[in-house]
Amino acid sequence: MLLTIVSRLFQLYELAIVVFILMSWFPGAYNSGVGQFLGRICEPFLSIFRRFIPAIGGIDFSPIIALLVLQFAESGLFYLLSFI
């Protein structure tokens, strides 16, 4: 039960990050209510990776690394919770 809840929370956050990234394709999307909400949720996590990974050719690759780190964190947490 606990693993299912944690898994769903990770999936929801990953979806929020993907939607936030895709919003960059639409002008003014970040100014909408959903955009501002997702910005408050996703930007603190993504900003950690933007400090270390520069944009190459105007393309920001830091969200890809952020999603990979999130996947590793989820796997590690599941490994730890499997002992409980």
Rank of each mutant, 00 (worst) to 15 (best):
L2C: 01
L3P: 05
T4E: 12
S7H: 15
L9P: 12
L9F: 14
Q11L: 12
Q11K: 09
Q11W: 06
L12E: 07
E14V: 06
E14N: 13
V18Q: 11
I21G: 04
I21F: 05
M23V: 02
S24F: 00
S24I: 01
S24C: 03
F26P: 00
P27T: 07
A29Y: 00
A29R: 02
Y30C: 04
G33K: 15
G33W: 11
V34M: 13
V34E: 06
G35K: 11
F37A: 14
G39A: 09
G39M: 09
G39L: 08
R40T: 07
R40Q: 08
R40D: 04
I41W: 09
C42N: 11
C42M: 07
C42P: 09
F45G: 02
L46C: 03
L46R: 01
L46V: 02
S47A: 12
S47K: 12
S47M: 05
R51S: 08
F52M: 11
I53P: 00
I53K: 00
A55M: 15
I56R: 05
I56G: 01
I56N: 02
I59W: 06
I59P: 02
F61Q: 01
F61Y: 10
S62K: 00
S62W: 00
I64R: 01
I65C: 03
A66L: 08
A66D: 10
L67C: 05
L67M: 08
L67V: 04
L68W: 07
L68N: 11
V69E: 10
L70Y: 05
L70I: 12
Q71W: 10
F72Q: 09
F72V: 14
F72Y: 14
A73W: 08
E74F: 14
E74D: 10
E74T: 04
S75M: 13
S75I: 12
G76N: 11
Y79R: 10
L80Y: 07
S82I: 04
S82G: 08
F83I: 08
F83G: 05
